[in-house]
Design a binder for these strands. Sequence first.
RNA 1: GGAGGAAUGGCAGAGUGGUCGAAUGCGGCAGUCUUGAAAACUGUUGAGGGUCACACCUCCGGGGGUUCGAAUCCCUCUUCCUCCGCCA
Length: 423
Amino acid sequence: MLQLQIIRENKDSILKALKKRNIDAEPVVNAVLDLDEKRRSIQAKLDATLAESNKLSKEIGSLFKSGKAEEANALKSKTADLKEASKQMGEDLNLAIEALQNQLYQIPNIPHESVPSGNTDEDNEEVSREGDVPVLDDKALPHWELAKKYDIIDFELGAKITGAGFPVYKGKGAKLQRALISYFLDKNTEAGYAEVQPPLMINEASGYGTGQLPDKEGQMYHVQADDLYLIPTAEVPITNLHRGDLLSMKDFPITYTGYTPCFRREAGSYGAHVRGLNRLHQFDKVEIVRIEHPNNSYQALDDMVEHVKTILRELKLPYRILRLCGGDLGFTSALTYDFEVFSTAQDRWLEISSVSNFETYQANRLKLRFKDENGKSQLAHTLNGSSLALPRVLAGILENYQTPDGIKIPEVLVPYCGFEEIN
RNA sequence: GGAGGAAUGGCAGAGUGGUCGAAUGCGGCAGUCUUGAAAACUGUUGAGGGUCACACCUCCGGGGGUUCGAAUCCCUCUUCCUCCGCCA
């Protein structure tokens, strides 16, 4: 959520920046400014009334103390009107605050200046590309065929147990998945990220904190009986670890990594592009999260990008990095780099990581602040990235490492797997 | 699930109806001392709103109530602790 003060002071530049997202934010920004004005005016009146009432109370108190009960009782009657008025104003104030909040929730983050303009994923800017795309023979199969051939992932079985998009990993497929999780976590902890295992369900406050609510309510599974949501990503519980915190400078940087399953309803997604592992309702992901001083957050973002690169290099998967354009940028993000692995057998790029700086957008909702060098509290910056999303890495490995005789295991994973080939 | 207890500033911890936004300790910051550091000593230090700046207002887990006045009394919810039951 954008900071009110910044909206007040920079309306024009905010509107201009939001145009990169192809939205005209003027109506909502105007509504925010009006409601803010309204809120302050109600607040001022309420404060004056309360001040008067406080003053009377003190007088009454001192009159009682000095034994002038009669005068005190006379004053009491004067407070009734004030009380009634302040009650009404309090209700008006709450309504104004709520309305203001609702409008603020509708304004997305301001794109970073480096974000290219554009509407769709086709307008994303490729910033680098690395790795060799293997040359496969004509009999190369997409991963869902390979999964069946070697009996390592069973989509139908998962559909029986739960539904489409909930695969069952079997045998070496399950082991490979576990190997990847361990490998990712090891890489991340070696790089200094502290490992955590957060809850897989979150409450409403956490959902609002990182911005999944109210914006993406329909994308999360909601457990009605307890009013909890299944996490769509570890970003939510891990970033919320510090909701409400007032940090000191020496706490920075705060860095975490965590493995969790992720649950996404993905309502309305069908067709060839969501086949196999390409898009699931439940999938595994290892996440990295950082909380940073504002001056350092873009350096941190670069560090995260570099870190993910080293993993993909070790896995020897061909990848490219995209800087998301305004139209494709997530609601809460200021700058996002997507990593995509080239799947030879499908002849397409698969998104396997998304690394973002949210600047103060989430921190504002989280009330995640720190004391700066002047002793002032200000909002921290939050960042996160996948390192990595398992299914598409798995798809990439299966497809790119296939041979007529079986699927080779990337060298770095062999110690984790305990075998060199799936056949 | 049942019975009790608790929730206070960055942390610990006093405070049971009227200058309490809140003692004290730790921590933080500034200074004295020191070649430097530590120790010691002195001062300072909650958050948010509001204002050009003051004033002023709000906040003692959340919500509601009693009262002229609530951290303090009542109701309710949440969370934590102890005991009992159940259980991976």
